[in-house]
Each structure stands twice: as structure tokens, then as C-alpha cells.
């Protein structure tokens, strides 16, 4: 089978998994269903000839599942009955999103067809990457040589996010009792 057929199959499966994840009542099943989407992305990366990305996506998915399950597994969880306003919001949202989808079809037609990318900058990197950087893996040559400052920024963002998460989790709430009284 050609790559495109496989991709259509995998992405349809991912759409199904994401809808199931959003509509399930049980939160643990919902988090596991998100795992379908993430691992589907990993499989798609393999079909699209990006092995580095497939490995990173796989690890990301496992870590995200661990974080989500660890954080939410013990919480009491009460799903509210949907009110009338919520149903109107859902209807309007679905109609708007379908309209956006139909309008966007023309934009996707104007893009280069699948399988024929515009490789302008990449042609230089492909031709000279091994000579300039000495790396056999050309993805690594971009990350760690041509765009090393980008990677430095990424590490800074990751560090800041982890620092922020730790800070948020460690703060004692000052007015915990007063808020509970007001509720």
C-alpha cells in the first residue's frame, strides 16, 4: 500500500480516538484514549521517514500519560449534567467549525501537493550538511549546529516551565480558609 493510504488510515483512527477521549465520562479512560492519538502520531512519523521524531514522540507520550495519570487519578471527579446553554454553545461551535473546514479546503488546494515539498533552504542543508558539520544524521546537524541557538532557547523554555510547575506546586495558598468560607 502507498504511504498516503496508511496515513489516511492512521489519522482517521486518531480523529476517532480524540473524539472518544473528549466525550468519555471517565477521566482515566479519557487520558488513555489520548494515548491512542499520541502513539498514532508516532506511527505516522515512522511512515513519514522521521525516525528521530518517532522516538521523541513516543517518549513524550509515555511521560505525558505518567504525568496526567499521577496528577488526576486520586481526585474526586464529578461530571455535571449539561445545561441548556451548553447545548447551544456546542451546536454553534460545531456549525462554525464545519464552516471553517469547508472554507479552508481551497487553501489546502493551493498548497503544494502531498509528496512534493518546496525544498529551498533544505536543499543547501542536505547538500552541505555533512561537509559543514561532520554529522551523518542531518536532523542532528540542524539542531546542534545550524540552529543551535534555537535549541538553547528550547532548553531555556523547558527549564522555565519545569521551574514554574515546581513553584506553583510548592506555594502555600495564603487565603485558603477564607476562600472556602466564601464558597
Amino acid at each position: 500500500m502507498p504511504v498516503e493510504t496508511w496515513l489516511i488510515f492512521v489519522i482517521s483512527f486518531m480523529i476517532l480516538g480524540s473524539i472518544v477521549a473528549l466525550e468519555l465520562k471517565d477521566i482515566l479512560s479519557s487520558i488513555i484514549a489520548i494515548g491512542i492519538v499520541g502513539l498514532g502520531v508516532s506511527v505516522s512519523f515512522l511512515f513519514l521517514q522521521a525516525p528521530d521524531l518517532a522516538i521523541v514522540q513516543f517518549l513524550f507520550e509515555i511521560f505525558a500519560l505518567i504525568i496526567l495519570v499521577r496528577a488526576f487519578i486520586k481526585k474526586d471527579y464529578h461530571q455535571e449534567e449539561p445545561s441548556r446553554v451548553n447545548k447551544i454553545l456546542v451546536g454553534v461551535t460545531i456549525i462554525t467549525l464545519i464552516a471553517v473546514f469547508l472554507l479552508s479546503v481551497n487553501i489546502f488546494k493551493s498548497l503544494p501537493a502531498f509528496g512534493k515539498p518546496l525544498m529551498e533552504t533544505s536543499e543547501y542543508y542536505l547538500a552541505n550538511g555533512a561537509k559543514d558539520t561532520g554529522s551523518a544524521n542531518l536532523v542532528t546537524s540542524i539542531i546542534l549546529d545550524y540552529r543551535a541557538y534555537d535549541t538553547l532557547g528550547e532548553v531555556t523554555v523547558l527549564f522555565t516551565a519545569i521551574l514554574g510547575a515546581l513553584t506553583i506546586l510548592r506555594i502555600k495558598s495564603r487565603s485558603k480558609d477564607s476562600v472556602e468560607e466564601q464558597l
Binding site: L53, V56, V157, L158, A165, I168
Partner: peptide, 16 residues
């Protein structure tokens, strides 16, 4: 590759 790693940081912060 950069974007995926940043997404993990964002998820961790939102969960916190």
C-alpha cells in the same frame, strides 16, 4: 523536535 519537547513542559505546567 524542539516543539514536541516544549509541549511536554507546557503540559506539565498546566497540570500543576
Amino acid at each position: 523536535l524542539t516543539s514536541i519537547v516544549i509541549e511536554l513542559g507546557i503540559t506539565a505546567m498546566l497540570v500543576a
